[in-house]
Amino acid sequence: MTDVLASEWLKLRSARSTWYILGVVVAFVLLMAGFAFYVVSLWEGMPPERRAGLRAAQPEQVVLLPLQICAAVLGVLTITSEYATGMIRSSFVAVPRRGAVLAAKAAVVAAATLVVGQASVFVTFFASRAIAGDRPIRDFAPTLIGELPKMLATGLSPMVLALVGLGLGAVLRSTAGTVASVVALLYVVPRFAVALPDPWNARVGSVLPEDLTRQLAGEAPMAVDLGSSDSAIGLSPPMALAVMALYVVVALGAAAAVLGRRDVR
């Protein structure tokens, strides 16, 4: 298994797309630093009595937006690019235990996205706090300890999406189809959820990736938070984690099933 892992790690490292994706994430972290500078300059330019009213998004949370899609695409490409190039045949000839290949891909992708996910969140946090200095900007004020659960949850969710992308990619085998499906899961389905009447907006929303991240950190689903759902719906952090795990298990399980049964074209 370690050989398969090493081989998959080499494959991931040697694909140009991996570095493009990492580049996008790094660029975004830098953009967030710029955002922090902007907020600081805004705060400086305000009369002192209005400064308390300044609201700004927390940079380490905004990073989740590109992280999720980038991680998902990385997961998708790990498998669909092999189908696109025919490399998958060589891979399965080299290692006929298809389950092992899938598991190794999953492990490598999970490790990479977990590390990059957590690193971007924490780097963004520390960078923006360093830029803010000791200015009491309201949304930059919470301490590391207070923010830790939320940051850990945010850093974890890219990994979940990467594994979902990997599993879906193995099932669909088409880069375009799988990337579009992941995009739909991340951005389109939540819109339907919001359009559903209360309490269904919160019920559906609470099991979608974005709300799962919030609930893992102990927050309420978006619909409840925004007041568009009156019901006290929401998953406890352990339940949210379980649903996240379920996403991964279902996606990878389906992938393992089709890989084992289907001919490799």
């Binding site: 493009y20 937006l65 590109p66 695409v73 490409l77 375009a176």
Partner: peptide
């Protein structure tokens, strides 16, 4: 395909949120 689809969805879905 992957790059362009991500770019289009970035324009459609991510930029408005940002």
């Amino acid at each position: 395909a992957a790059g362009a689809i991500v770019a289009v969805s970035g324009l459609l879905f991510v930029l408005p949120v940002l």
